[in-house]
Computed example of a mutant assay.
Amino acid sequence: MNELFPPDSPAPASSTAPSRWQRLGLRTQLALVFGSLLVGVTVLMSLAFGELLRWRMEREVSASLHAMASNAARQLSDGLFSRAHTVEVLAASPELWIQGLEAPGVGALLNRARSLTPTSLWIGVADAEGTVRSATDQVLVGLDVSDRPWFEPGLQRVHVGDVRASSPAMSALLPPAADGAPRRFMDFAAPIRVGDLTQGVLCMHSSWEWVRETMQTLQQADSADRQIGLFIFDRRGRLIHAPGDSLEPLLALDQRLPVAHTVSADTADATLQPVQVARWQDSPQSFLTATVPL
């Protein structure tokens, strides 16, 4: 049975009240919609521009790091070439050896050659059997050096040895380093030939100090604040130079070259990505790392 309301009775209230959005006018609704779209687009563009700016800054810093590493590699290559060339020229001068490896003028010539390269600790001449015949300040003269790592390669070709510590016997015969630290040096050797006969080997021990001095001149004044450092690793990935006093702490942490690499004696066979983000042992942070084969 239906109950009818009297004609003059008020209609019942609606069961659902209009929402706040519905109570807004059309103009206000449009303004809110377009305003929200504008805010969204602005946020997206800000994020995009921020990412683009970060990418550009990373590219610029990467280029700067790679340029610094390339400059250091070039400077060191020039230094290595200069020392190797000095040894090669001396060894390839038959007029010096025609009277024998222990002729009176040979020792004087070796002393003059050492004075031209202040970082040279010792220059000596060994015969084909490995006995030192002449040397600067007569150091090691008469001793057998056939077991030294430079002798056998030096009989065959121009040889540039790895960085190594001086032996106790050699250290006792050479003046101590200015800072008292154990001396490290590189061997540069070349065969002495007169005609078709190989008479011996000429070898120069060059102090590793020149590398430290070269790297210091390349380090920028604000490098420490920007956490930029120049490091040298050998072809096996072992650290052999670090800025300041950081070498020993990094060696204690067994710091290796922190990027994938393949480096042989021929740098043309080296495979190194120019710049990578890498993790170093002394920091939880990752760093942009530029690598250049030397």
Rank of each mutant, 00 (worst) to 15 (best):
M1S: 13
M1N: 08
N2H: 12
D8Q: 14
D8E: 12
S9D: 05
P12E: 12
S15N: 04
T16M: 03
P18R: 13
S19M: 13
W21C: 02
W21A: 11
R23E: 09
G25F: 02
Q29W: 03
L30H: 06
L32P: 01
L37C: 12
V39L: 14
M45I: 13
M45C: 08
A48Q: 12
M57C: 00
R59W: 01
L65A: 12
H66G: 04
M68A: 08
S70M: 04
S70R: 11
S70N: 07
N71F: 00
N71S: 14
R74T: 15
R74I: 12
Q75P: 00
L80R: 07
L80F: 15
F81N: 09
S82N: 05
A84S: 15
A84N: 08
H85Y: 15
V89N: 04
V89W: 03
L90N: 03
L90T: 09
A91T: 00
A92L: 04
E95V: 09
L96W: 04
I98Y: 02
Q99L: 12
A103K: 05
P104Y: 06
V106K: 03
V106Q: 07
A108G: 02
L109K: 09
S115K: 07
L116N: 13
T119E: 12
S120G: 00
W122I: 08
W122E: 06
D127R: 09
A128N: 07
V132F: 01
R133L: 11
R133G: 01
A135G: 09
A135Y: 08
A135M: 07
T136M: 01
D137K: 10
V139W: 01
V141K: 10
D147Q: 14
L155W: 10
Q156E: 15
R157E: 14
R157A: 14
V158E: 01
H159R: 03
D162F: 02
R164Q: 14
P175F: 08
P175D: 13
P175C: 06
P175S: 15
P176I: 09
A178H: 04
P182G: 07
P182Y: 02
R183K: 04
R184E: 07
R184I: 03
R184P: 01
F188R: 05
P191N: 10
R193K: 07
G195W: 10
D196E: 15
L197V: 11
T198H: 06
M204D: 10
M204V: 14
S206K: 01
W208L: 13
E209H: 11
V211M: 09
M215C: 03
M215T: 05
Q216T: 10
Q216P: 00
Q216S: 08
Q216I: 04
L218D: 03
D222G: 04
R226I: 02
Q227C: 05
L230E: 02
F231V: 03
F231M: 08
F233R: 06
R235P: 00
R236H: 14
G237W: 07
I240P: 14
A242H: 04
P243N: 05
G244P: 03
G244S: 08
P249F: 05
L250S: 05
A252S: 10
D254N: 15
L257M: 15
V259G: 03
A260R: 09
V263D: 10
V263I: 15
D266Q: 07
D269A: 11
T271Y: 03
Q273M: 07
P274Y: 01
V275D: 11
V277W: 13
A278P: 06
W280H: 13
Q281S: 11
Q285F: 05
S286D: 07
T289F: 06
T291E: 00
V292T: 13
L294V: 15
